[in-house]
């Protein structure tokens, strides 16, 4: 590394050595001078490597004496899961959410106080870690295993607190009430049955067809992306469970009328009548036209 860097060469080699070299060429022929120059270059390289090694060892020694002392303060209270979560965080999240979960301007929001619910939703649906900055984080296969997600949740929860994941049967609620609440609170963005819909400027309410119970619950708790937070004051835990019950019942329900064509209403139906109905009939009258 240092051999290719002329600047470091001059800085390291200035001083007595130069005066020694300046004497040597006077002793012999131009060939000898060239040989000496070559030899001196090799020596210089060796010196560079040695200096680098010394620097690295020094840094390592300094770190090993200073760093543990700085960390020792919260070492005692951090569980092993939190420590593992911290490691994952520092590997995958730190560049946008900051060293201390405080967020980085124009990159990522602060995670202080978002709680484990937000971590579960964002990481379990694969939205985080983000691939690139765009209008909205798309969901994709989760990067972390369930165990790693638990560790990340523990770490974030331990540093700022926030909403926690529920336990028990998340579909334990009244079906009809869930439907009513869904249409009142969710349908305006997620469509009648959770098919999703467009929002402004490239943002969108995603389809909740493939979401599991916990993802829906944690989304309501944490309000990811453009979604409002539905805290327990807005929708009680029972009401959230009713909504989840409704969503999952409707999603699993077969369409009694035949192919569901996306369950998006008149746009899909209009497409079908023109592409299937009218096309089939045009084909039919071509066929009749070809008959005598």
């Amino acid at each position: 590394m240092s051999t290719t860097n002329p600047q470091s060469d001059t800085q390291l080699d200035e001083g007595p050595r130069r005066s020694r070299w300046s004497r040597r060429p006077a002793e012999g022929t131009p060939a000898a001078a060239a040989r000496a120059r070559r030899r001196s270059r090799q020596r210089r390289r060796l010196a560079n490597v040695a200096a680098l090694m010394a620097g690295l060892v020094l840094t390592g020694a300094l770190y090993s004496t200073l760093a543990p002392g700085a960390q020792a303060a919260d070492e005692g209270s951090e569980s092993s899961a939190e420590a593992a979560g911290r490691e994952l965080y520092e590997r995958s999240c730190i560049s946008c959410h900051g060293e201390n979960l405080e967020g980085v301007p124009n990159r990522g929001p602060s995670l202080i106080g978002v709680g484990e619910a937000a971590v579960y939703f964002q990481v379990h649906t694969g939205r985080m870690p983000l691939v690139r900055q765009e209008a909205q984080a798309p969901d994709k296969p989760a990067i972390f295993s369930d165990e790693e997600i638990d560790q990340l949740m523990a770490y974030v929860q331990a540093n700022g607190g926030g909403p926690v994941l529920p336990s028990g049967d998340l579909r334990d609620g009244d079906l009809a009430l869930g439907g009513e609440l869904f249409r009142l609170n969710c349908a305006s963005c997620h469509n009648f049955v959770g098919e999703g819909g467009a929002l402004s400027s490239g943002k969108y309410a995603p389809s909740i067809e493939d979401a599991n119970d916990l993802e829906i619950y944690s989304a309501m708790l944490s309000g990811p992306e453009n979604m409002p937070v539905f805290g327990d004051n807005q929708l009680t835990a029972e009401e959230k469970r009713s909504i989840i019950n409704y969503i999952q019942t409707i999603t699993d329900m077969p369409d009694p009328g035949g192919a569901g064509i996306g369950r998006i209403g008149p746009v899909g139906e209009g497409l079908v009548i023109w592409l299937v109905g009218v096309s089939a009939l045009l084909f039919g009258i071509f066929w009749m036209g070809s008959k005598a």
Partner: peptide
Amino acid sequence: SAASQPDW
């Protein structure tokens, strides 16, 4: 609801 449309 989102995507409330009339027939085509």
